[in-house]
Design a binder for these strands. Sequence first.
DNA 1: TATTGTTATACTCTATAACTATA
DNA 2: TATAGTTATAGAGTATAACAATA
Lengths: 149, 149
Amino acid sequence: MHAEEVLASELANDAANEAWRLVAQLFMRRAGRAADVANSYGLTPGHMKTLLTIEPDEPKPMGALAETLHCDASNATWLVDRLEERGYVERQAHPTDRRVRTVALTPEGIKVRDEIESKLYEAPPEFSALAGAELDALCATLRKVTPAD
Amino acid sequence: MHAEEVLASELANDAANEAWRLVAQLFMRRAGRAADVANSYGLTPGHMKTLLTIEPDEPKPMGALAETLHCDASNATWLVDRLEERGYVERQAHPTDRRVRTVALTPEGIKVRDEIESKLYEAPPEFSALAGAELDALCATLRKVTPAD
DNA sequence: TATTGTTATACTCTATAACTATA
DNA sequence: TATAGTTATAGAGTATAACAATA
């Protein structure tokens, strides 16, 4: 690599880092909102995250839930206990392995989960102010840098 | 507003919401990394955030610190206590109001803070893979939607 | 014997209330 | 009297360890 290429690469990296910093700042500035949404449903952030982690019609084993939430199995038990008391989820038997208990959303849980999701994914007003073409370009670029799970 | 305009506005809103959702997903996917960085310095996320909240050469009163961190004053005391034990910060007297104690970074604190900051703001590899022009456009758009404090 | 999940318990982080010292 | 910060204490959230059921 020649000197000019090294320099160009470093500049590109600066731009990449700046883009990432802006993404992080943007999100963190709105982080308080997520806590407010959880609060408005009388949920802790952890319980809200648990609710969002379970897909409708896809019962999830306790172990998988704990893994997704990056938490301990006993903590997952506690989180699900509270959501079950509320009637948002229910534990079910696993069809083949009787050691496993899966957690499924109830109709009420699905309703609340949908409401929460739409509130969390509501864009800040600055986004709507962008021109249509710029917004489309933004989405396209963001999709490129979003790893496919 | 005519029917076509309403429709266009809703579509724009969908694009805005998608952009926001992508930003949120992007960040959350990397959220674990922040905890890892904190951990690698033997800090809790809260202590790391505290360190990042204090600017070098800008001693910050305890009260202002608590406000920035959105936490209680007693919690701020606890956070600063631990950082002070480590030698990352030190409490100083306020020049005019003797009730106030300001918190300043030590040279060691500045060093660690810089290291942490550079790790946190390091872009995911997908960003660096973007073409220069697209990266610049991304930054420009993100700056537009970043409220000026 | 190994694995899934729960229970009992302890630890960490955060907040509320009472207190000290300055203003 | 009001304010800045600390200390004592309690609460919420999370983890570790021992246990029960099943594979």
